Simulated assay, not measured.
Amino acid sequence: MALARIGCAGWSIPKAAGAAFPGEGSHLQRYAAVLNAAEINSSFYRPHQPQTYERWAASVPDSFRFAVKAPKRMTHELRLQDCAEAMRQFAAETTGLGEKLGCVLVQLPPSLQLDAATATGFFALVRENFGCMIACEARHPSWFGDEATALLQAAQVTRVIADPPKGQPGPHVATTGATYARLHGSPRIYYSSYEDSFLDQAAASLAGRVGDGRDAWCIFDNTASGAAAANAVALLQRLS
């Protein structure tokens, strides 16, 4: 059954949004009692022990899923080249999530141009190590042309719908049947809360995709002002 997965980058609960969540439990337990997905961004900056991932997995319901952001060691430092060792380490760490690992998110630096051979090899390496959904948020214009679309389609990698889009010269072109949206806040990135009209449109779009049998993730990354949790709950209420 297709699902709409609604969540935030992280699981902090600002005081202003606290009334929408239970009062008891850890932040993650309270968060997961309402929302059914979360993006782990800290993995981009530093490794975590498998036991840490195990603890997170044990804190959420069976139906909950995490997306884990690929380490910047691979995406920003190695720039997708010679990543076998780093990928094995990342995969070994995240085994603690078990079946609650729903997606690996690959966010690329704005300066990284498409190199088809390198990208093909990298995504094959991701697929060798992970059996879940793979999503890619590229931010250089070269990743939005026909060559990139064909490459992502062949690799079964979901192109992220980003708001605001960066590097994307035209409308979004899907590369798989699934959807992964990252809403960073607009007009002020990471800060702005989304207005009701935007959330209405997002809810209608997600409902349509799920109704067609397609999984759809929507992650709010406008966390700097604490808007993400309230926006996620408001979107979930519209879908309910």
Rank of each mutant, 00 (worst) to 15 (best):
G25F: 07
H172P: 07
P164S: 05
Q49V: 12
A227R: 01
Y180L: 08
L97D: 00
C132D: 04
P71L: 06
Y190N: 08
A181E: 02
C132S: 08
P61D: 15
V233T: 05
W143M: 06
L206V: 13
Y194R: 04
T52N: 05
H48Y: 09
V106D: 03
G96V: 13
A204K: 09
F220P: 04
L112H: 06
I161D: 01
V60M: 13
L239D: 08
F122Y: 02
A17P: 05
Q89C: 13
L28K: 05
G211K: 07
V160R: 01
A37M: 08
F64Y: 05
G167A: 09
R159T: 07
D200H: 09
G185S: 11
F144D: 04
V104C: 06
T120K: 09
A230W: 02
C83M: 05
Q113K: 14
R65P: 09
A228D: 05
P187S: 11
G208D: 12
V210C: 13
E195A: 15
A203S: 12
Q168P: 08
T52C: 06
G226Y: 08
Q89I: 11
A178I: 01
Q29M: 13
L183P: 03
E77N: 04
V233F: 05
H184E: 01
M74A: 12
P61C: 15
R214F: 04
L114T: 07
V106A: 03
R127M: 11
A162C: 06
A174H: 06
K166D: 02
S43A: 14
A148V: 11
Q81R: 10
A67Y: 07
Y194W: 08
G7A: 13
N41H: 11
A230H: 03
V210P: 10
H184Y: 07
A138C: 08
T75K: 03
A38C: 14
R127I: 14
P169K: 02
L206H: 06
A227L: 00
P164H: 05
Y180H: 07
D215K: 07
T118L: 03
L152K: 00
Q153F: 11
H172E: 12
R139E: 04
K166R: 14
L101K: 01
Q113Y: 09
G167R: 01
G98Q: 05
